[in-house]
Nucleic acid binder design. Sequence first.
DNA 1: ACTATATTACTAGAATTATCGAATTAAATA
DNA 2: TATTTAATTCGATAATTCTAGTAATATAGT
Lengths: 102, 102
Amino acid sequence: MNLETAALILSKIGNPTRLRIVRLLVRAGDQGLPVGAIQKKLKIPGSTLTHHITHLKNAQVIRQERQQATLVCKMEYGQLAKLVEYLTEECCADEVGSENRG
Amino acid sequence: MNLETAALILSKIGNPTRLRIVRLLVRAGDQGLPVGAIQKKLKIPGSTLTHHITHLKNAQVIRQERQQATLVCKMEYGQLAKLVEYLTEECCADEVGSENRG
DNA sequence: ACTATATTACTAGAATTATCGAATTAAATA
DNA sequence: TATTTAATTCGATAATTCTAGTAATATAGT
């Protein structure tokens, strides 16, 4: 994980609609959630939803698995973990002032 | 902290230039860093830097304090802490699947 | 094959964001 | 007051992003 990738992921989840999608998927857990189910919850046009899903997929924040007719969206927890690790190591702690913050 | 605010902050730090600024400021610690010092490190025009600083200020990710002739930028750690708290409580854990994630 | 459901692709206008030069404001100092 | 240093505002342009309608594609059941 480098700075550019971290910024990319942050910018992708830094959109209200996409953050809602992420929240739904995290809460759905390992079984994921079909696109149609997300659409019903968010009440937005399919084309708009696909646009956002494409963003999240491209940044590898989520992935999709086909189950018969429906495509199930799932979180890419590994990518999120790497992001948190990067932010923790690169942008936080281990430098001047980090002890006197609390 | 609500979803919209969280998304706003994420989008602001989800820009490579602004993430660099944040990284510099976190590493600078409580003493912060003058705008001019940031400019020297990032090597970008002042107007561009101000543009990004304005974004970070508006989202309360950083604040500025005047010290004589120079304006010192400092992290707003509180805001970051609230963001992490929101993400942890709203978007992670405490739901199906969070235990089996390894 | 036909139909319904699920999802993506194409397309375009609106809105937002990024960049940076030039002019401007603010503070310190001669 | 004039000058220098520090930083912002203004204004223009380019690039990206958001939204959503319409058309197309894929899958499952009849």
